[in-house]
Nucleic acid binder design. Sequence first.
DNA 1: GCTCAATACTTGACAGTGTCAAGATGTAAG
DNA 2: CTTACATCTTGACACTGTCAAGTATTGAGC
Lengths: 198, 198
Amino acid sequence: MSPEKHHHGNLREALITAGIELLETGGLEALTLRKCAAKAGVSHAAPAHHFNGLISLKAAIIARCYRMFSASMDAKSRQAEASPRAQLLAICEGYLAFSRDHGALFQIMFQPKPKALANVNPQILDELNAESSKSYMILRTACAPFAPVGGHDQGTEVMVWALVHGYAVLFANQPDKETPAGTLPEFAHILPDLPLRN
Amino acid sequence: MSPEKHHHGNLREALITAGIELLETGGLEALTLRKCAAKAGVSHAAPAHHFNGLISLKAAIIARCYRMFSASMDAKSRQAEASPRAQLLAICEGYLAFSRDHGALFQIMFQPKPKALANVNPQILDELNAESSKSYMILRTACAPFAPVGGHDQGTEVMVWALVHGYAVLFANQPDKETPAGTLPEFAHILPDLPLRN
DNA sequence: GCTCAATACTTGACAGTGTCAAGATGTAAG
DNA sequence: CTTACATCTTGACACTGTCAAGTATTGAGC
């Protein structure tokens, strides 16, 4: 149970940290099992004893990314005033700030993970689902004060999520890319006016 | 200039077609230079004479994908009535239908392509930009009848694009994934009411 | 018809990648 | 001390993209 167990200490966390560093500095395709192992100072096959292949390491990395993601939204939320609209905008600004400041992390989080996810350790998968649910709950809570869009229970959160995620993917996440013609409106200008409940 | 030039004929187009087939059947990571070459019946190094590396083949594939993408939106547009709202919804339905029916193509189209794009043949890059601009113009035309959202010139098209793209990425493109809690509202229900110009 | 240069393709190699099998090494319990 | 076990290393394999060198086909000039 002690953190200093064997040769290395806690290799598991070191590999996740190494992976995030690789992503931040080199982008999506810089993430490699062997480079993570080298960065952690172990041999190329060492990770296999902690992660069920590359896909499992990715899942563990993504789980930690979701924690940073939630923190980014929470931080903006705390800085904003308490009105529902200000809170919702703050959540979205946290969403967009993360996609801007941690582009590669944002990409791997929402990159479609194919059937390969079936091979990952159930414990890691559970943690991943828990963290992503937590992030979603932040958005959902910020949407709760507003009347349901389109008369559908999940209408507001689906609309806001799609809007902010599309904005992030198309514009915020790609620093160079501008709107095909002209300047880009700020997100606050394209978020529709949402009437409050009741 | 004749289409039957050398051993193979027009290997260039055959490689693009092979790549699209690989994507459709095996997903993003099934696309491989060597598999494309094998599918076209040539040796593994043959593509190098037509494409400046894998990234150039990808760019050429994406250009063809944009053509299919535009066709999908155009088809829905022609089936719909002429009212601005019906036309805009039809364009979006074409957008979503493509993301559903050609998930891997949709993914590679909007996958963030890193600095590597600098290495692709300028001619291929021009074609890619031309095709993606054509697709964007379809959306822009459908947005034109509506008053600018947020008082910004590009407000409407940016809002609609972000909304439909986010919806596609988060829901339509991932067949299994449902909204985290409950059922998913249809896109028509989350597209806000947009007042016409003037 | 022949020569010759250019184009299209093949073969072979190299450094990477993920993954597996087998062995070595340290840890901890009996 | 011994034994079982978790951890890590070494080595191999197939696969990837890319490069260098060689071969074959095409087409133009004469």
